[in-house]
Amino acid sequence: MEKLSPNIQFPAPFSWADFKQIDVENTFDLDSAYKICQSIANNHYENFPIASFFIPKHLRKHIYSIYAFARYADDIADEKSNSDQATRVAILENLEYLIINSDDENTKHYPIILALNETIKQMNLPVDTISRLLTAFKMDIYFSQPNTFDDLMNYCEYSANPIGELILRLFNEYNEETATLSNKITSALQLINFWQDISIDLKNNRRYIPKSLMDQYLLQNIPNFDNVHTNIENPAKIEEFGQFNALFEYLFSETENLLNDGSKLINKLNNKKLQFEIKLIVNSGRRILAKEKSRKYHLLFRRPKLNIIDYIRILLKSILWKY
């Protein structure tokens, strides 16, 4: 990309409640930029820890900047942004331009970009890994149901795996072996989120379950599938719940195998704090997956969430982790 797209304004992040009035008349220093990123990270609900107490203090601001950037780009790609597809893609391309061209004077107006560029510089992070994230958000804008499970995993390669790779690099733990295992964890977490959010995605006419699996389980041509959540008051009317349960069992099994294989990463790491952070993340994934397993087709109607008891269990299991 050689220059910014003309006449494209960057919106303030839609989840960025305290800073919606920011516009191109404002400029920021690095300290305030990182504080804004921290606020975004700390105020957004997630299943998995973000820069927790166990992450070294000097690295937390860098994790905040990466996370805030991902949230920002996700907000732009979101259909609720009230912009057409071409405009949203142009904004994402402008973001990429400001990352590739970090000395551009426009960066000072956008604290998330300012902080991320400093993180890239200080920690010697590859820009192409950030670009992969932006590719995922463009895929979201032009969403289409994946044809195969491999297509879904390809999406994870862009949407989830770059985050794990960046974390490894921040801790100087990145190599071919650790990256492969990390990718299994992050892909599994992405799948867990898909299954967790299926009731919401159906309302938004999004199917992340591959077409080939829908065909295999005789579900692709169910006329009321996209509106299945409206049958919650009388789910017995839907005869296909047996097939849904079988399909979910397959999806849960594939997801669990990925997560368990990826957990071998812990033994490959030298940094004890990162080891514990990964234990927390893996156990968080296992806990929400267990809730999904217990619900089966009820996932079509309600989104499972973690509660305080779940978080206590996650912490205890991480402390008592057995290799």
Rank of each mutant, 00 (worst) to 15 (best):
L168Q: 01
I185N: 03
L181I: 03
L213S: 10
F137H: 00
E239H: 04
K237S: 12
S131C: 12
D140W: 05
E254R: 10
R132A: 09
N161A: 13
F171E: 02
D201I: 05
L219C: 03
G242V: 10
L152R: 04
A136K: 01
Y142W: 09
E177Y: 01
Q196C: 02
N260D: 13
N147R: 14
S253Y: 08
R206L: 08
P162M: 03
Q145G: 02
K184H: 10
S159H: 00
N234Y: 12
Q216R: 10
N193F: 03
V127C: 06
R207W: 06
Q216E: 14
A188W: 01
S212N: 15
T230M: 02
G164Y: 03
L170C: 06
E254I: 14
K121N: 13
A188R: 05
Y174E: 14
D150C: 08
P146V: 11
L202M: 13
L251I: 12
D151C: 13
V228I: 12
F194T: 09
I222V: 12
Y155L: 13
N224R: 08
L247Q: 03
I167S: 00
V228N: 00
L134K: 06
P235I: 07
C156K: 02
P235Q: 08
Y158C: 13
T186A: 10
E254Y: 04
H229E: 07
I232H: 06
D150M: 13
I266S: 02
G262R: 06
I130C: 08
G242W: 01
E256Q: 14
D128Y: 11
L189V: 05
L213N: 06
N224D: 14
N172T: 11
V228C: 01
S182W: 01
L213G: 04
S187I: 08
L251W: 01
Q216M: 10
Y158V: 10
V127D: 04
F137E: 00
A188E: 05
E176V: 13
F244L: 14
N245V: 10
L133K: 05
K237E: 15
N231Y: 13
N221G: 00
I232N: 00
G262V: 10
K237H: 08
Y155C: 09
T148S: 15
T186I: 05
M214A: 06
D151A: 14
Q145P: 02
G164R: 05
D215I: 12
L265K: 04
L170M: 06
N183G: 14
Q122R: 07
Q220T: 12
L189I: 14
T178N: 09
Q243Y: 00
Q196E: 03
L219I: 03
L168V: 04
E173G: 01
Q190E: 08
F143M: 15
E240H: 04
Q220A: 13
I141W: 02
S253Q: 14
I200P: 00
N257P: 02
P126G: 09
S144M: 15
I222Q: 08
E240A: 08
Y174W: 11
N231H: 12
F252V: 02
I163P: 00
I141M: 05
P223T: 05
L265D: 05
F248N: 11
T178L: 05
R206G: 08
S253R: 10
N124H: 11
T255V: 05
I209C: 06
Q216S: 09
K237G: 12
P235T: 06
I192R: 01
N260M: 15
G262S: 09
N231L: 12
E165F: 06
A188I: 07
L125N: 08
